[in-house]
């Protein structure tokens, strides 16, 4: 009460400090990406000019035009979106079930299974390449979306399960016990109570899964064959020639690729609203 007068001032100072910190911190991700954006508008020569400039005389949308007028490249984008979306949805469904099991149950094989799930992603992919590729060919999945979707699920599922286990572990068990006392099954407890509360966690796992599938290169290249099945990272690598790179087109393609992803994130980040879960825990 004594501080009543200075309290708004204090908050204002604190707010200013937070904003200043946010602005300074934003340089770390912001500047390199700004540089990428600037490079995408430059001529290939000016990208290496010294002294470097943010905007040069060669400013043009040429690199973007080259990307969006190529049906081949647009197909890369379509493929990437389709694959990433399928991977994200399936990984979330399967991962939530798995995470729930690890978080809420004790069972004899729990530790070994947990180790196995972690272990499958601890083998460097480059050594798995040939046996895995042979398996995909054997399953007649070579050059299909299914090959990519299932492969990325193998990569992302471990992560999704581990993270979902972590999020569920932060939620009190009384929540689902309350459901069961009311006569609900564990499945109802999961989907009606835990999943809605864990939406922030689910969104963050989903976003990451999407990014991982979106950015993967090695398997995207190996498991597909024809140009109409390639994804964006392969398309970017195709601009890295034997003797020279198309620097500005590579940058333009990355910028174009990231825009929809950022919009998606902008939409979903509203689930990160502080205190959203507090009410339900109380109730």
């Amino acid at each position: 009460m004594l501080n009543a007068i200075s309290r708004p001032a204090k908050i204002r100072i604190a707010r200013a400090l937070v904003i200043i910190a946010l602005l300074i911190g934003a340089l770390l991700p912001g500047f390199p990406v700004l540089w990428m954006l600037s490079s995408s508008f430059k001529s290939n020569m000016d990208i290496f000019a010294y002294p470097p400039a943010l905007i040069t005389d060669s400013f043009s949308f040429g690199a973007y035009a080259a990307v969006v007028t190529s049906p081949e490249k647009l197909r890369f984008f379509l493929n990437s979106y389709l694959v990433s979306m399928f991977v994200t949805i399936l990984t979330l469904l399967v991962g939530i079930l798995g995470g729930y099991s690890f978080s809420r149950y004790e069972f004899p094989l729990k530790r070994p299974l947990n180790m196995v799930i972690i272990g499958v992603q601890a083998v460097p992919p480059i050594t798995l390449l040939i046996p895995y590729f042979s398996l995909i060919v054997f399953l007649k999945l070579h050059n299909t979306y299914a090959a990519l979707v299932l492969t990325y699920m193998v990569f992302t599922l471990s992560y999704a399960i581990i993270m979902m286990t972590g999020y569920f572990n932060t939620l009190p068990r009384q929540l689902d016990e309350a459901v069961m006392i009311d006569g609900g099954s564990s499945f109802v407890a999961l989907w009606r109570v835990l999943v809605p509360i864990s939406l922030p966690g689910i969104v963050s796992v989903g976003v990451y899964t999407f990014m991982l599938a979106w950015n993967e290169f090695l398997f995207a290249l190996t498991l597909t064959k024809t140009t109409d099945m390639r994804t964006v990272p392969v398309g970017i690598q195709l601009l890295m020639g034997q003797h020279s790179y198309e620097w500005n087109e590579m940058m333009a393609m990355s910028v174009l690729g990231c825009l929809p992803v950022l919009l998606l994130f902008l939409f979903f980040q509203r689930y990160f609203i502080a205190g959203m879960t507090a009410g339900s825990v109380k109730g």
Binding site: G30, M36, N215, M240, M251
Partner: peptide
Amino acid sequence: RVVYILPWVFTASIIAILWRL
């Protein structure tokens, strides 16, 4: 939030190229 997740949305080879530049 959107600015801060930027490093995430690029494929590793482009991040390597960008930092090399």
